[in-house]
Design a protein around this nucleic acid. Sequence first.
DNA 1: ATGGCCATAGTGTATGGA
Length: 256
Amino acid sequence: MKIATWNVNSLKVRLPHLLRWLEENPVDVLCLQETKLTDDKFPISEINSAGYQVVFSGQKTYNGVAILSRLPISDVVKNNPRYSDEQQRILAATVGGVRFICAYVPNGQAVDTDKYVYKLAWLAALREWLAEEMITHADQGLAILGDYNIAPEDRDVHDPVAWAGQVLCSDKERAALTGLMDLGLTDSYRMFEQLDKSFSWWDYRMLGFQKNKGLRIDHILLSAALAKRCTACTIDRAPRKWEQPSDHAPVIATLS
DNA sequence: ATGGCCATAGTGTATGGA
């Protein structure tokens, strides 16, 4: 089973990219973030025609998440039941016996802003909910995929000195991510040998991608039952080179 | 040179992203 996550930064703009990518990478489950579409505008038929079922939770202009699957999707939950949130950032569903959570963690804008406070509160609430979900789904396994908007370590940052203490890299954010992992989740990417300076996001400005000035902020976290089954995790930089790309690249994990 | 983009709403320019 191949599972993946991709922040598409507008599914309206990126639908052709998505369809091309699925053709070249026929993963079983794909979590999308930043669809930026209300549910009435979601391109269901195009995705069905590509061989995928899909569930989604969107809003106007910002945020929006979706889960695509080749296999039947059941037990869909929108949002974190423990956190009242206008913003559509969480979608959970069961596929092939595995519990999937698609997450678009708030960006946080800058340390010491209201948005940063919201990000930390949101992550604390996610941890509370995940603690329960981990128990409920311990046997079958739980995967939480998404744009975490956190670079876990300095090696996930192109210029750790410049980014030190900044949003996406601050100690409090990293502690929040560690807090999630302490529930028994593994960063699938770091289970395997990877090249130095591997990133999943590059700024559109300053020739970020061409100079590989990026961050690794998109992650696939796996519970123990799934980590045992995980045989590979990669970042696919290819679609970042296409015309009018998303600023994020997909992350793919293979489960036996 | 220390800045350079992009999507959205909406029609000039602000906001958010990361």
